[in-house]
Design a binder for these strands. Structure first.
Lengths: 211, 211
DNA sequence: GTCTATAACGTGATAGAC
DNA sequence: GTCTATCACGTTATAGAC
């Protein structure tokens, strides 16, 4: 049966299933054959909807970013808006950790990612920051959010405690980090976020409000 | 010629050439065949020196981390040591940007990466920070350094100015970011680094030195 | 035993004909 | 949409020169 009367595929269905495979089994598990199989279809059929596999990854990545809330810009004061946005951004990425390496490359031309960049930059300009500062603040926040989701600290160490014993005197408990994963990475994120925003408020009072 | 009198390969030569290929043409360009060709050898020969391609990547990654200076811990006060270490860390990663995605996964069992983690954690403990804070500070610094090299902000936008015009009102100049690449990313890094360390000093005075 | 070469397997992305 | 085909990949098996 070369072709059914109703199309089996759509860009949306493909992206949904691709995202599920990436979430459950990792980026490496997403092959065109595997994706097609889960859609009850053969691999080449995907090319009727996307030009390359890269395009599918782009779409899946943008779906992750599209879930980031930006409604706090405007109603809220900029420091609190920035804090809430960063938390939501991190949470959205943390929900799809296997996708983060791909997203880390930057917004490129993905619409949701550009909408995000535009919102933050615009909010900082509205608050009175110069273009130069707004750019650097946006970049700094991006560094921090991506860093915190890309290489979750607690997962970077190996489970085997004997891997570290002796040679690295201070890492004797490193293998236990995994057990406190969210406490460690969540705590580190909040520590850094609070520190950054407090510092920016201080800078704001010195440079923007020079009253 | 099945076997030359002098071995053509060594782990070190393989790592050197692999690193060069990754630097010049990207992670994706490193295939076993390509690597072997540059070494004037066939791909399977590599397996006499490394069990898998992953092992080659591990070794190349660790060579990058091995270049990070940690001699400032000890002689220097912790805030200044932390600042210098972060700058050196970022610089070492920036010298091999195509390797950063791989390194972002964490130290695992790579010796140089573990030595680094051990040094920072130990220095923070020596300064009087609690284990809990030392862990979170190390993680925060790691987030920031990796975020800043992994997705260089200025390279995340596309060159074509028409890609953004109209739809994203504040991004009209985003395509120009690439021209000021080092200014933008270097400025954002210094802004965030200074803010983080100032904040940590303040926290230190409140929690550790509670005089 | 050590280090290479050749050949081959299985899987990947993707192009073209139907 | 399917099928067939191409080419690159990581890796293994095996054989032969030092």
């Amino acid at each position: 049966m070369p072709r059914p009367s109703q199309p089996l595929l759509s860009r949306q269905r493909i992206v949904e299933v691709a995202l599920r495979i990436i979430d459950e089994e990792g980026l490496a598990a997403l092959s065109t054959r595997r994706l097609a199989a889960d859609l009850h279809v053969r691999a080449p059929s995907l090319y009727n909807h996307f030009a390359t596999k890269e395009e599918i990854l782009d779409a899946a990545g943008d779906a992750v970013i599209a879930a980031v809330d930006i409604s706090m810009f405007g109603p809220r004061e900029w420091p609190e808006a920035l804090r809430q946005w960063a938390r939501g951004y991190r949470a959205a990425l943390a929900r799809h950790p296997n996708n983060v390496p791909f997203l880390a490359g930057g917004p490129a031309l993905r619409p949701a990612a550009l909408r995000l960049a535009d919102a933050v930059y615009g909010a900082l300009l509205d608050a009175g920051w110069s273009r130069s500062y707004a750019t650097r603040i946006g970049a700094t926040m991006r560094y921090f959010v991506f860093g915190s989701t890309l290489g979750p600290f607690a997962l970077g160490f190996v489970v085997d405690p004997f891997g570290y014993a002796g040679r690295y005197p201070h890492l004797t408990d490193a293998h236990r980090l995994r057990q406190h994963r969210e406490q460690v990475d969540g705590g580190a994120f909040e520590l850094g976020l609070g520190t950054l925003i407090d510092g920016l408020v201080r800078l704001y009072d010195q440079t923007v409000v020079k009253s």
